[in-house]
Design a protein around this nucleic acid. Sequence first.
RNA 1: GGACGCUUAGCUCAGUUGGUUAGAGCGUCUCGUUUACACCGAGAAGGUCGAAGGUUCGAAUCCUUCAGCGUCCACCA
Length: 878
Amino acid sequence: MRDIPTTYDQKQEPEIYAAWEDSGYFNPDNLSGEPFTIVMPPPNATGTLHIGHAFEASIQDTVIRYKRMQGFKTLWLPGTDHAAIATNTKVEKILQKEEGKNRHDLGRETFVKKVEDYVTLSRGTIQKQLRTVGVSADWSREAFTFDEPRNLAVRTAFKKMFDAGLIYRGIRVINWDPKGQTSVSDDEVVYKAEKGKLYTFKYAKDFPIAIATTRPETKVGDVAVAVNPADKRYTKFVGQEFDVEFAGAKLKIKIVADASIDPEFGTGAVGVTPAHSVADFEISQRQNLPAPQIINEYAKMMDSAGPLVAGKKTKEAREIIVTWLTENNLLEKTEDIDQNISTAERSGGIIEPLPKLQWFIDVNKKFQHNGREATLKQLMQDAVKKDGIKIMPERFEKVYFHWIDNLRDWNISRQLWYGHRIPVWYCESGHTKVDIITPTLCKQCSSDTPVFGTPHDKAEKHSSIIAYVENTDGKILTINWGKLGGRLLVGGGIRENEDPVECASREITEETGYVDLEHVRTIKYSIVNNYFAASKNVWKKINITALHFRLRTNNQIKQKLEKNEQGKFIVEWEDIEALRKEIKDPAHAYILRLFANIPHSLKQDEDTLDTWFSSALWTFSTLGWPAETKDLKTYHPTSLMAPGYEILFFWVARMILMSTFLLDQIPFKLVYLHGIVRDAKGQKFSKSLDNGVDPVGVINQYGADALRMALMVGVGAGNDSKFDIQQVKGYRNFANKIWNASRFVLQNASDLPSPLAGEGGRRPDEGLLPEDQALLDEVQTLAKSITEKMDRYDFAHASEDLYHYFWHSFADKTIEAAKARLANPETKESTQRMLKESLETLLKLLHPFVPFVTEAIWQLEHKNLLMVEKWPAKREKK
RNA sequence: GGACGCUUAGCUCAGUUGGUUAGAGCGUCUCGUUUACACCGAGAAGGUCGAAGGUUCGAAUCCUUCAGCGUCCACCA
């Protein structure tokens, strides 16, 4: 009898995980076969694992493990999200609480540093927690939405869209969040039902038309009254202008006819407040009306609102104006109504529509795409209609199309400090520069003022600069450029570990790689950001410890560098003064000009990008884009995306937009939308309810397998589910059942000669009694049925079937019946073989769902990992 | 206002293209300590499938209407 403990101890899970991770099989470089890719929806870098994460991770891990066993080259790429707005808000709160300061007290740089420190501290917590769930993700490829490679992707994407005319800057009435002090996109606005009052009034006694509003305080910003052109009651007034004195403000109200007005509603006339209502702003554009702003970013009335309310909060102003209306006998009616107020999704602040200069992505603009005219909306529609993206469950496809139909231009700029800075620079002369790399000079200006010497300048003609960087290993990587004929030469074929002297000489003598100043900036960008252009499309990360310059005349290069190391000096890149001191030779004057004689310096746009802009690039920015890396070619389009349905618009739709536009590829083939995990009563988990469950605590108590089963069994795509700890307990018992059934088999079949069926040696059916063969056939039938369900992504039933078969057929019936047969020498061996083979097949089938306990058992008998065993049934052909 | 989803045993949910006595888990009850497991086994009770009407030889399943619950979208001043 083998000595195996009578209960499965989930405390060994971390050890098992370590064995998987150490095996290298999380990394597809160590696997072969057709690629199968999932890029993980990145949890917030500052977050901690909640049940929803555990659920999402379980789904993906189940798929990945299944596909890996089936022989796919599986990549599951993990990462975290910088979640600009959420993180920004979080740190501001901490700052307020601990130091009583706001971000402006610190200043941009200090604040951003503080946020980054905070992110560094908490980033990684969630990865550690994900490991406890058992995720078999390739940590070597881990990405962050706000690291350098992703920043390069963001800038590249922005520039490409800008160049295509799809990104524009303009003044629009946007959703302003006074609490978070930023604009937010339409999707980040959530409506809350509230009781409100509808006031019907006239601006002045002699004003001919009454209007209705729920926000009297905005009426001091009115410029017109709009009526339906077909409304006979008002036709005679259209075109007239009235000067009115309204609540202390002098207004000029024009009567205009606009088809958007519903004559049936209220008085059939609308007071138009262009600056503080999206709909009114549009009317004002059509009717050529001004848009005076009367509410500021802090939701306070501005001086332009008139002396009666200036400086007051909107709520106070409302009361003042209602009082004023009453006192002046202008208020005709006050009705109680149900209305929706707009709030900011993250901060909860009440949205104040304000006119602001912002960046937008134009979703309706036509552009050339593959020789055809298209809009971004069309690209998004086609991706699902005909380019092969499948959404599960299917009903969400309808939701998706409906969303696209109603989509307006996407406001992508945020007035936050933490996030990808908008890659746009402005110079004093008013030039705008959009670029991937950070420019230091205004190209338009500098083209008027050459920064380099003339081609005929002999001294300059024969000089060159070599710059090289040292990495931490003391290895030298070179970046060098020289100057020939007044043009700057940059080494195009920079080689790793190449001797700087050799490189410089080679570059110059071969006269390769003529480039302009732009390329110098590219190099500079790469150096500053620790990225090194090893060749045209390959970016390598290096650790720069020092940046060196050597100045030598061309013909002396080799000799001097070999012999005279005193020529070497170190400068800070931007430290022009240091450089000036070092460069004494007037022959190198042009170098000074390169750094010092800057015609117009550029200032970067203050705004940052909507966090979803960088998230939208996630499927390919994680694979190396914009470089055409091997990963990108191998793993994109990805196979599966499994987010919650609540981010279908925020994220899934935007990934489709970016991928189809930038790569001309769909980002993924299948979207499996999962539902929300609620508490046992069906309520959402929330801080205010304090009903949160810590999955790590659950795992510590009952094991990851139990948690995973509880989350997966019976939960279909798109369905919300309820989390009950009783269920987890039940599946912990199941894990123990697997353990003990296995224990029985191993203890009773250990004297059986290995290897077993199929693995060389005897044929599977050789010498098997018919009744045992029948049981094996039954398991095989199950394997087939499970495989079918897995291929349909029907984990709800696959897991349930396995649970049921293992417990109530294999354990309760097969094993029970085997007890007598094992005692009989006639039937013993056949029974042993049947038991062992059944068990092995069942363990394989169970592994994607309960990876730990199955692996633990497998390790009792095998050297190889169950994780990479072959799946026991053929793949469904499609 | 528009769209979608749900309503089946005490609870949580399955029920594929309509086909015999409607299933599972948990819970409840009864019995049981047989050398895999009490984190167990054997067994039992428990449902006129939200309501009404229709199609059909036959409806939990298809159609219509209604009710309740829920979600998303739009938002009218």
